[in-house]
Amino acid sequence: MSYQGKFRVWRGDDSGGGLEDFTVEVNEGEVVLDIIHRLQATQAPDLAVRWNCKAGKCGSCSAEVNGRPRLLCMTRMSIFEEAETITVTPMRTFPIIRDLVTDVSFNYTKAREVPSFQPPKDLAPGEYRMQQVDVERSQEFRKCIECFLCQNTCHVVRDHEENKEAFSGPRFLMRVAELEMHPLDTADRVDQAQDDHGLGYCNITKCCSEVCPEHIHITDNALIPMKERVADRKYDPIVWLGNKLFRRS
C-alpha cells in the first residue's frame, strides 16, 4: 500500500532558509529517513541529511519531526495519518550547516571538558577487577549512541544560547555521573559537576529522558543522583557529621 504523503522540509543554510513543501510517495513499513532519501532521489538531489546506519545505532540522523526531536531512521511513517503534513526540521539548538545537517561540535567541546577515567595509581591496565553490581549503574549510561537529541531538547541551551558556556548538557552530566559511579574511578567529580559543568542549571524537567532513543533514565539515574551527591557535599550537615564521626568514603 502506498500513498502520496505531504511533507514540509526545512531547506537553507546559515544565511537563511525556510520550509519547502513536497509531495512524496510513502510505502508501507517505511520510516521518515526513507522518505527523505526518496526526496533526494526524485525531487531534491541536493537535500543535505546526515545518516549512517539506518538502525538507530549511529546517532547521526537526529532531527525534528513535527516539532519533536527524533531519529529520522527510527520514526515510522505508520505513526502519522495519511492526510497529515509532516514537518521535518534540523535540530534547533546547534548551528545550521545545510538543510537537515547541523554542526554538533558544541558537544565535542563539552566532551573534552570532562576529565577522563582515572584508575588508582597503583593499578596497571589488565589488573582492573570489578564486581558486576558495582558497574551496573554506569553500564546503563554506556548505551548512549551520542545522537545529541537530549542536548538539543534541553531548554537550558535550546532556549538560552548564552548558557552554552556554563552548561554541559544532559549527555555530559551523565558522563560525569558514569565516571563518578565507576568503582575504579578516583577523581572527585562532584564539585566538577556543579562548578564546571553547570549541574545547577538543570531543573529536572526531564525532556532529555523523554527524547532519548535509548530510553536511558538520564534524569532519574544520572542527574538527580548527581544533585544528591552535591547536596551531600554542600548542603547536608548530617552526612557531614556522619563522615566526620565514622570516616566513611
Partner: peptide, 24 residues
C-alpha cells in the same frame, strides 16, 4: 516548573523567559 512557570511548558516548546539560571 513546567505547569506554572513554563520553564519549559513542554519539551521542544520554547519558554517565554528571556533569562534562565535554573537552580544555580
Amino acid at each position: 516548573y513546567r505547569a506554572a512557570w513554563a520553564s519549559p511548558p513542554a519539551c521542544a516548546v520554547a519558554e517565554p523567559h528571556a533569562k534562565y539560571t535554573g537552580e544555580t
